[in-house]
Simulated scan of single mutants.
Amino acid sequence: MATILTTTSSFKERDNETTRRLAAAGHRILFSPLGRRLGEDDAVALFAEHDPIGIVAGVEPLTDRVMAAAPSLKAIARCGTGLDSVDLEAARARGIVVSNTPGAPALAVAELAVGHILGALRRIAEADRLIREGNWTALSGGLLGARTVGIVGFGRIGQRVAELVTPFGGRLIAADPFAEAKAAANKGVELVALDTLLAEADVVTLHAAPGTVRLGAEELARCRAGAILVNTARGDLVDEGALLAALQAGRLAGAALDVFAEEPYAGPLAALPGVTMTAHMGSYAAESRSLQEREALDNLLADLVRIGAVAP
Rank of each mutant, 00 (worst) to 15 (best):
R294G: 09
G35D: 02
Q292P: 11
E89N: 10
S290A: 14
G103V: 06
T137M: 07
P167F: 10
G170W: 13
T7L: 02
L304G: 05
I117R: 03
G54W: 03
L130V: 10
A185K: 03
Y265Q: 00
E60A: 01
D298L: 13
V192Y: 15
E163V: 13
P33S: 02
G134K: 00
N16Y: 01
A302I: 07
A174S: 12
G267N: 06
P105R: 04
A90I: 01
G103C: 10
V310K: 04
E295D: 15
A221W: 15
V59M: 11
V152I: 10
L272W: 13
L118F: 11
H27W: 08
E13S: 15
A75W: 05
L197D: 03
L62K: 00
T7Q: 02
A146E: 10
T3G: 08
L118Q: 03
S140D: 12
A127D: 13
G134E: 01
H50E: 06
L118D: 02
A217W: 14
G155M: 12
L5Q: 01
P273R: 04
K187E: 05
A221Q: 10
G58T: 02
R222K: 14
E133Q: 14
A185F: 09
N135G: 09
P33N: 03
A93D: 06
D128K: 04
I4Q: 00
T81S: 08
A48P: 05
G119H: 03
G82K: 02
S140F: 15
A146C: 05
L22V: 12
D176R: 00
P268S: 13
T18R: 01
T7M: 04
Q248C: 09
A25F: 07
P105C: 08
Y284W: 12
T278W: 04
T232P: 05
F260Y: 14
A261L: 15
P105L: 08
A69K: 07
P167A: 01
V44A: 08
K74Q: 11
G150A: 01
A227D: 03
G188T: 09
G169D: 05
V161D: 04
H50P: 13
A70H: 03
V44F: 15
V152S: 02
A125E: 11
L164R: 08
D15A: 12
G235T: 04
L191S: 08
C79D: 03
I96T: 01
S288F: 12
L144W: 02
A249P: 04
L30W: 15
L73T: 01
R37Q: 12
G254R: 06
G169K: 05
A175R: 03
R171E: 08
D239Q: 07
